[in-house]
């Protein structure tokens, strides 16, 4: 049995899910659609490119690869830096722009400002790195035939990475104090404040976490496709669609939503043609808005 299309969908979808997890975290706590989330993805990818490159140059021993993958231990340092950097950027953006607008109480103005931030960040990336695509490695990750599907080792690396991050996210939001406080603030910020939760701290933690997860998604995307200033912007609609399909605010929803979008895209590529891939997210989004606007795992409000 040939499982190429489902496997492709699973891998693409896992990255969409990772991005959607960040979108859903910010939305769950702050109640606004963050249009610059895609740029956090791109920034994470570029930071990893720079740091990974520096580490590889400084310590040639870290340039080894295993099993035909192009991902090196040096890139793992890049991944760490990318996640930290994207998380830090999210915090800075909140402190500089979003928090001030939020205090004025205009939710849609925050969303509008995030659209401006997205444009400025993307243009800044292009000004710094030019629009030319970059790669973590010049070598090719040769696909291995598993019988049911042909998969490049890099894709398996990404799949494992996403699974680990999601497991960690799930544990963090359900088992730690901060994770529970995040969900409490999302449910009812006023009540959360009354019971003594430091809402400002929770908001910072949410931005940081959402940004860091976006950074990881950026490295994954850079490993699978290519690194370009517009890479995150291209992921924005799939991420939003996945978050809404799954139900805004639900981490489990982001995972299933992402896999659904990825699966749909893989089918579209196989049946209709790769150029129509981006329409899949939109079609799913519209379908959910008609049938079940609160998403698969969301609750009607």
């Amino acid at each position: 049995m040939n499982l190429q299309v489902p496997m492709d969908g699973l891998i693409e979808g896992s990255l969409v899910a990772l991005g959607a997890a960040g979108v859903t975290l910010t939305y769950g706590t702050l109640r606004f659609g963050h249009f610059a989330h895609g740029e956090l993805v791109s920034v994470g990818a570029y930071i990893a490119l720079l740091v990974g490159g520096v580490v590889a140059a400084a310590m040639p021993a870290l340039r080894v690869t295993w099993g035909g993958a192009t991902a090196t231990p040096a890139l793992a340092f890049g991944l760490l830096a990318g996640a930290l950097g994207a998380g830090a950027l999210a915090l800075v953006l909140d402190a500089l722009v979003y928090r001030r607008l939020r205090e004025r109480g205009a939710t849609m103005t925050v969303a509008m400002a995030s659209f401006g931030v997205s444009m400025a960040l993307r243009a800044l990336l292009e000004a710094c790195f030019s629009a030319r695509p970059r790669y973590y490695s010049e070598e090719l990750s040769i696909a291995i035939d598993f019988g049911f599907a042909r998969l490049a080792p890099d894709r398996l690396v990404v799949l494992v990475l996403v699974a680990l991050v999601f497991a960690a996210l799930g544990l963090y939001t359900t088992r730690t104090r901060m994770g529970r406080e995040m969900r409490a603030v999302g449910e009812n910020p006023l009540l959360a404040q009354v019971v003594g939760i430091d809402v400002a701290r929770v908001v910072r933690a949410t931005w940081w976490l959402g940004g860091a997860v976006a950074g990881v998604a950026g490295v994954g995307l850079g490993l699978l496709v290519q690194i370009r200033p517009s890479m995150g912007a291209a992921l924005l609609l799939p991420m939003f669609a996945a978050a809404i399909v799954g139900g805004l605010g639900s981490l489990r929803g982001a995972l299933w939503g992402g896999l659904l979008v990825g699966g749909g895209e893989a089918l579209a590529v196989a049946w209709v043609g790769a150029e129509w891939r981006a329409a899949v997210s939109f079609a799913l989004l519209v379908l959910v808005l008609i049938v079940r606007p609160y998403g698969l795992f969301g609750r009607a409000t």
Binding site: M108, L237, A241, L248, A279, F282, L285, V286, L289
Partner: peptide
């Protein structure tokens, strides 16, 4: 629906029109 849904859907429309 929620105000954000309009924003996200219009964003999607722009993507599809471009496509």
């Amino acid at each position: 629906l929620r105000a954000d849904y309009l924003a996200i859907t219009t964003f999607g429309v722009a993507v599809v029109v471009d496509l």
